[in-house]
Write a protein that binds this DNA or RNA. Structure first.
Lengths: 228, 228
DNA sequence: TGAATAGTGTCTATTAGACATTATAAC
DNA sequence: GTTATAATGTCTAATAGACACTATTCA
């Protein structure tokens, strides 16, 4: 008996860009428009069937490259979805392994965009196909949790950055203001930052010290699965 | 082209039972002996191919029932493994969605056991098939993490219990002693326990107050995936 | 009465948060 | 000098851990 289950890999991709009206940095995510049934015309997570010669994470990375033209700064498995009622018709049984990724949108200013690929503000999404709205909500929940106890926020920034820039990332993800003094103490106490010795000048104020992250510390602690 | 990927669901099952020599409560897990190649004769996680008419969690629950005869008190998805080098021969490409479960071993004193199903102390395992040693290590890591910030320890206990019994579960999972006074304060401050008004007598000491958990609080906070 | 564990009180060190103060650039 | 933000200092409340002490039962 042939296995009747199709296995797909999709990826929730996050980048930080200014909100179209407020100009404040907010999370964006790229979606692709479905060009056939079911859910034709609706927006969906980028993804596709798992190739016979690629691992799960490799498939997620490929999807990301094809959709955005960017390289992920962080990539982690989110969840495997496989309930029976995921598709409207029971005809095609689909199990999806979902990854989530962080990219630096500045590199290509959101990269490829076309009629069928568009970036949306993560809190202002259109109607999504299948259970993708639930998946995106879960990915946002994971990101907002993880930014508080790991250094994944660094994935949105360049090689070196000021504490104000790092704090702006945290504030955009968590959607609340953070006290600069307390933020500084917390971050410095974690021992994850190394001062580069250089400063960022240009503002009409005291120059800000530049930092980089200690490369020997993982972006997130996934226990025995480090680097998988 | 038919999808060449086989999808299986396996489950890491944990129960608390006395260690065979020290008699102290420790984590046990049931394994099944492989009766054919590859890895014939080695021990492996209970599991099997995903049925066409069952969801992922349902398949994990079925595996658990077939292996132990028990009903899970807690069941959560662990991870989907799908790298290309999981099986020794590339002939069969396998993606496994792994769940982990907590059961009360006392109900049936470890339930079914046979030549090909045996319970092992989780820290004293034999050589395992495939990547199952890594998977078990990861499941233990998740359990030990989660017991510190959720109330999953309750899954090992009955309807009502004393604080000393709950503390014994934490100590067995975390493998270190906890101060009774501080443990009590922490648990009571969390507001998850409700005193039943009854007491456990019989020891040669002051009777212990019995508690039950507030049922309106989930065993673990999985965000938008609550109850999936 | 003594042994054993239940349960409470208290002290200290650490941490999070609020907020004041000083430093230094651009204008 | 003024303004804006960098960077530091200080106070308080909450929390974790160590440990002393009281309460109550059984042998």
């Amino acid at each position: 008996m042939a296995d009747p289950v199709t296995l797909a890999v999709s990826t929730v991709i996050f980048a930080l860009r200014p909100h179209p009206t407020t100009r404040l940095p907010v999370l964006w995510t790229p979606l692709v428009r479905r060009i056939r049934a079911p859910h034709q015309g609706k927006w969906a997570l980028p993804g596709g069937p798992l190739g016979a010669d690629e691992g799960l994470a490799a498939a997620a990375g490929r999807t990301l490259r094809e959709t955005t033209g960017l390289t992920p700064r962080y990539l982690e498995q989110l969840y495997a979805f496989g309930s029976l009622d995921r598709a409207p018709s029971a005809a095609e049984r689909m199990v999806s392994v979902i990854y989530w990724a962080l990219v630096r949108a500045e590199e290509a200013d959101a990269g490829i965009e076309s009629v069928n690929v568009r970036w949306f503000v993560a809190d202002e999404l259109p109607e999504l196909a299948f259970d993708h709205a639930l998946i995106l909500e879960y990915a946002l929940w994971r990101l907002r949790n993880k930014v508080e106890y790991s250094r994944i926020a660094a994935a949105f920034l360049g090689e070196s950055f000021t504490l104000a820039e790092l704090r702006a990332v945290h504030e955009a993800v968590l959607q609340r203001r953070l006290d600069p003094a307390n933020f500084r103490r917390q971050i410095e106490a974690s021992g994850r930052l190394v001062p580069t010795g250089e400063f960022r000048t240009g503002g009409r104020h005291r120059p800000a010290r530049l930092f980089r992250h200690d490369e020997s510390i993982e972006l997130a602690d996934n226990g025995p699965l480090t680097g998988l």
